[in-house]
């Protein structure tokens, strides 16, 4: 395996530049960029499953919900709990964790949920797996709506400390980029990506595809759960609908537009849609047509799927080119070679 220049470096640099530029903007623009960076974490977490294994998921926002609720309820100050969460079980109503610890606990909870589901993904693949993840999303949503002692149901979580600033979000985005880049180039990551291209061949070469995919689900569950906790601490108050179909669509659109098979795609897609959203929201306000932004995103996603199914990045990673290594440059994964006009 020839050493590659890591793509984490240029991607982290992009995140830093975005945060620096945003820091000089107005408060509301800063908030939008912060939201974009937190969503980038979710999309990177989603990529660590969908992109690396090739199994599609509509359910990862369920992990984000678990992370957000658990991190939220653990971090709400005890004084507010008496008022807002009177029905909490005793031991929970006396807990007030540091927000960062609470986020990690939320990630762990989402990881546990993913671990419960992992065996299923050792057995099903392709479409059935995608639909199973959808079933998971619905289960989490129904529980969040109805388990009022903990989640306050449709009234929504309140009083979650707002700890996620621009730089907190940027640091998390960098951590995610680094972790997922290391993961996808690790031995396990390479086996999974081999199985993505051809699971029978990968299995024949000794990759235990089912077990590895289960593991990938757990890792992505942890990551998305963590991002969910961070998102919850950005919003401060949220209800189950925040973590349902809208966010599922938005994050999927970001991943598809950027390019589903590369980490660079996850980062670029999020940035492109975040900036487009700025512009479209203004237009939507001017024309008084709510839903316009979503319609444009859906059309963009559709155009990408038809004209360039591998996304803006075409499955390639952004790499620093070190001249002396050029000779040994690896060929990009086969997906990158599918040209739009060869699919007639």
């Amino acid at each position: 395996m020839p050493r590659q220049a890591p793509s984490a470096l240029p991607l982290a640099a992009i995140v830093v530049v975005v945060a620096l530029v945003a820091g000089s903007l107005s408060r509301s623009s800063q908030l939008d960029v912060t939201t974009g960076l937190v969503q980038m974490c979710i999309v990177i977490g989603l990529y660590s499953f969908v992109g690396v294994t090739g199994v599609f998921s509509f359910g990862h926002i369920g992990f984000a919900a678990v992370g957000a609720y658990v991190a939220g309820v653990l971090a709400v100050p005890v004084t507010q709990k008496e008022l807002l969460y009177a029905e909490l079980p005793g031991w929970l109503s006396n807990v007030e964790l540091d927000p960062l610890v609470a986020v990690l606990a939320g990630a762990l909870a989402a990881g546990v949920v993913a671990a419960l589901l992992a065996p299923a993904f050792g057995r099903v693949s392709g479409l059935s797996a995608a639909l199973a993840t959808f079933a998971m999303l619905v289960i989490v949503y129904v529980i969040a709506r109805n388990y009022e002692p903990l989640t306050r149901g449709t009234k929504g979580m309140l009083g979650v400390p707002r700890e996620t600033t621009l730089w907190v979000a940027a640091v998390w985005a960098i951590v995610f980029v680094v972790v997922v880049d290391l993961y996808q180039n690790s031995r396990i990551g390479l086996q999974l990506r081999a199985a993505r291209e051809d699971d029978v061949a990968a299995g024949a070469m000794g990759a235990r595809v089912g077990v590895l995919r289960g593991g990938a689900l757990i890792l992505s569950g942890l990551l998305v759960g963590l991002a969910g906790g961070v998102y919850g601490q950005l919003l401060g108050s949220f209800n189950p609908d925040v973590f349902y179909l809208d966010l599922t669509f938005l994050t999927l659109a970001m991943l598809v537009v950027g390019g589903i098979n590369s980490l660079t795609g996850a980062v670029i897609g999020t940035l492109v849609l975040t900036f487009l959203a700025q512009w479209l929201r203004d237009l939507e306000g001017a024309l008084d047509r709510p839903g316009l932004t979503e319609v444009c995103f859906a059309i963009l996603m559709f155009a990408i799927l038809v004209l360039r199914p591998s996304g803006i990045t075409g499955g390639r990673e952004l790499r620093l080119r070190l001249p002396r290594r050029r000779r040994r440059q690896e060929t990009p994964p086969p997906v990158a070679e599918v040209r739009p006009n060869s699919r007639t």
């Binding site: 599609f56 509509f58 598809v256 709510p290 839903g291 059309i299």
Partner: peptide, 23 residues
């Protein structure tokens, strides 16, 4: 395209039509 791409396309279409209805 493969089945997953079709699924994602239909998901995008579903979201598109819902938001057209909102408009």
């Amino acid at each position: 395209a493969d089945a997953t791409t079709l699924l994602v396309t239909s998901f995008a279409l579903s979201y598109l039509l819902q938001n057209v209805a909102i408009m």
